[in-house]
């Protein structure tokens, strides 16, 4: 357990207190005129599971995308082990990129429909130039880790169930052995059994790699069971739109 203050108005320099792990400092994000995140601090230490809770539209997913270095905040910064990360999306250095992974709510939306499950899992390895033999071996290892049988690996996303596809997405997220995994409602669409399975794989991985996990969920039972501590995001003042605003 860490002593980070996860108060939106907390001190901006909490990185100095907690050098290891993934931290967001004073993150502010606007969509159009609407302020989605307002000076939010969050810190995920190695080995802990931070539950993130908040009403719909309080910016939980946006915070996860900021932490995953996929969205540039309007102000504030993300730091890994105390060092600020420069750049987002394509501009993140490979050494940093491979240390943070994200698992989305809808496995279907998060999978390229053209790729087989094996190619899906191998994609991050190929993207970083892993040798073919190693990629093949690692893919098999990852598939085994999440409990996907080899006959499923040749299928494309439309030919497997949501549960099976989310397992493939989890394998893909773990491909680089990240030390931070951000689960954005990753089990909300899954049945109880698949949810428990995904949770078991993540907890096991977390223990072996002392990885930090961010758990975004609406389910109080899941938070109670899994999170080592829970952070509340205050709700947005206005009821947000049903669909995210397009740019």
């Amino acid at each position: 357990m860490t002593t980070t203050v996860d108060d939106p108005t907390g001190p901006p320099d909490s990185a100095a207190v907690t050098p290891t792990g993934l931290a967001a400092h004073q993150i502010t994000v606007h969509f159009g005129r609407q302020r989605v995140l307002d000076r939010v601090d969050l810190h995920i230490a190695p080995g802990e599971t931070v539950g993130l809770r908040g009403p719909s539209g309080s910016g939980k997913s946006t915070l996860a995308r900021v932490l995953a270095l996929l969205h540039a905040p309007d102000s504030g910064r993300v730091a890994l082990d105390g060092r600020p990360v420069g750049g987002v999306r394509y501009r993140v250095p490979a050494a940093v990129r491979t240390r943070v992974a994200i698992l989305f709510q809808s496995p279907r939306a998060a999978s390229d429909p053209r790729l087989s499950l094996a190619d899906l899992i191998a994609a991050p390895l190929r993207a970083t130039g892993t040798p073919t033999a190693e990629t093949t071996a690692r893919t098999a290892e990852l598939a085994d880790l999440v409990g996907l049988t080899s006959d499923l690996l040749t299928r494309r996303p439309h030919a497997v169930s949501d549960g099976q596809l989310q397992r493939a997405c989890l394998a893909r997220a773990l491909a680089h052995r990240p030390d931070h995994l951000l689960c954005d409602e990753a089990t909300a669409m899954l049945d109880a059994s698949t949810q428990a399975h995904v949770a078991a794989v993540v907890t096991d991985y977390q223990r072996r790699h002392s990885a930090g996990v961010l758990l975004i969920t609406h389910d109080p039972a899941l938070l109670a069971r899994w999170a080592t501590r829970v952070v509340d995001l205050p709700g947005a003042a206005v009821d947000p739109p049903a669909r995210p605003p397009t740019r």
Binding site: D191, A192, A196, A221, R225
Partner: peptide
């Protein structure tokens, strides 16, 4: 498999 039961 429910989180408030065995979670397996």
């Amino acid at each position: 498999a429910l989180p408030d039961r065995a979670f397996t």
